[in-house]
Write a protein that binds this DNA or RNA. Structure first.
Length: 467
DNA sequence: GCATGATCATGC
DNA sequence: GCATGATCATGC
């Protein structure tokens, strides 16, 4: 019989292996246990597995689940995405950050390390519309941070978070601040506020987590057996950003023509500049498909500054569906999640005397305070306009609308993004192939597909050091 | 010259 | 066929 919290490492590993291929219902059946719907509905799958697979009752938060083994147990989902690839469904939430005490520690003496340096992971395959009790555990892995190739980066991330607390900026923490170990919000809503030691400002309660993107990389490594993912850090023990800086420094000041010559690029296609950047890092596919960019959820973007200091183009986000987005709340919106978990790496080319010169890079994520204020207002304005009915104006061949445009707030705006334009309005106006290029609005009208964009002027602010 | 709607080009 | 990065075109 299992002995709950006292299981030693060997027992934990062998019980974990025994669970592979089984759902919670399978486990209960083997043990001839029935549980009431009430209990099944209330507890998360993780809690139920702890209880019925390991014989463990709910325990206090501050120690690892298994003591004295010092091992934490995590049951976490992954899923299949459209292109057939595997992806983590969620971030792996670890312990809540105690703003009042954790800053007094060093990394290896921290509460984070004490609780999470050994994590037994059980992965289950998440499927839509399936009872969680029937979802099957398919893989397990004992994750030991001290053996992880990412230990150095994780320590760097921990220090970044702690230093923000020490600087009295716990309220400005954002999950996208760091690479692999993040500080995610933990709590129902904005009312989950906590005190912080070096500022009077209340801060959102946050927990350490391994980011969804990082978990995706683990899923692909341990479950998907993807072996062809290229690395940026080709065996180097440097920190990611230092390594990038070293590579970039070698090319600063070179012109587009010189770089193309150096890297044997003959084409003049639209993705010329991203080709150049890929070659700098000596990767065959795109930078965005490399291990580090996937793990840290970094999107590479090439930016060109014109001679007058203007950036020609805004940057687009994925298309949203009108009827889906109006059912979201800001707190759980895709846009908020995206801004809070994505980093952007801008590679900057500036036009001087008619030639584009490479100026360097900037790794950036949107400050949390802007997300919580301006972006929230903008998002709500967009949703309200969609709910109330978009107002259209036909001007010649163009159809103007009243969604928040580039002049609305200085940061982001809504704009069409489609191969062609297409509309079918209640006024009787019709244009283009709505089945291909349009999306239906809540009131039944059809409008060319739209997405959010970063204003080009905001990007200019972000990279202003290079202008 | 810029805002903004429209469209091209590429790759999965 | 479509999403998405890149870019164009028109009118104020």
């Amino acid at each position: 019989m299992k002995n709950g919290r006292q299981c030693n490492r060997q027992e934990i590993e062998s019980i974990s292996k025994s669970a592979i291929g089984k759902s919670l219902n399978d486990i209960l059946r083997e043990e001839a246990i029935t549980i009431e719907d009430k209990e099944a509905n209330k507890g998360g799958l993780g809690q139920l597995i702890e209880k019925y697979l390991f014989g463990m009752e709910n325990n206090s938060d501050s120690e690892p689940d298994f003591m004295p083994a010092g091992i934490e147990l995590k049951v976490t989902p992954y899923k299949k995405i459209k292109n057939g690839k595997l992806s983590a469904k969620e971030r792996l939430v670890l312990n809540i950050i105690d703003f009042e005490t954790e800053y007094k520690n060093e990394f290896k003496s921290s509460h984070f390390w004490y609780k999470n340096n050994k994590v037994q992971i059980l992965w289950y395959l998440w499927e839509t519309n399936k009872d969680k009790k029937d979802l099957k555990i398919t893989h397990e892995k004992m994750l030991e941070l001290s053996n992880s190739e990412d230990l150095k980066q994780i320590e760097e991330d921990w220090n970044f978070i702690i230093n923000k607390i020490r600087a009295g900026k716990a309220h400005e923490l954002s999950e996208a601040d760091t690479m692999y170990l993040g500080a995610c919000t933990k709590g129902a809503n904005k009312n989950s506020l906590r005190k912080q030691p070096f500022s009077e400002i209340m801060a959102m309660q946050r927990a350490f987590c391994l980011k969804t993107s990082y978990m995706t990389a683990l899923v692909r490594k341990y479950i998907g057996n993807y072996s062809d993912v290229e690395k940026i850090l080709k065996g180097s023990s440097q920190l990611f950003e230092d390594y990038v800086k070293n590579i970039i420094d070698k090319h600063i000041g070179k012109s587009e023509a010189k770089l193309k010559e150096e890297f044997n690029i003959n084409s003049n296609s639209k993705d010329n500049f991203s080709l150049i950047v890929n070659r700098m890092f000596d990767v065959k596919k795109g930078l965005k498909d490399t291990e580090e960019f996937i793990k840290a959820n970094i999107i590479p973007k090439t930016i060109r500054i014109e001679e007058n200091g203007r950036i020609k183009e805004s940057i687009s986000f994925p298309i949203f569906k009108f009827k889906e987005i109006v059912n979201e709340t800001w707190e759980e919106s895709k846009f908020k999640e995206e801004l809070e978990t994505t980093k952007y790496m801008f590679f900057i080319f500036r036009k001087e005397n008619g030639k584009y010169i490479f100026k360097g890079f900037k790794l950036w994520n949107m400050p949390q305070t802007i997300i919580d204020t301006t972006i929230k207002d903008f998002w709500e304005k967009t949703i309200n306009t969609l709910k109330e009915g978009v107002k259209f104006d036909i001007l010649g061949n163009r159809v103007c609308n009243n969604l928040p445009g580039i002049a609305d707030n200085g940061f982001v705006h809504v704009r069409p993004h489609s191969t062609k334009s297409a509309y079918k309005l209640n006024s009787g106006y019709q244009k283009g192939d709505i089945s291909k290029y349009a999306d239906q609005l809540p009131n039944g009208e059809w409008m060319t597909k739209q997405c959010f964009w970063f204003n080009n002027t905001y990007i200019k602010e972000i990279i202003r050091d290079f202008i």
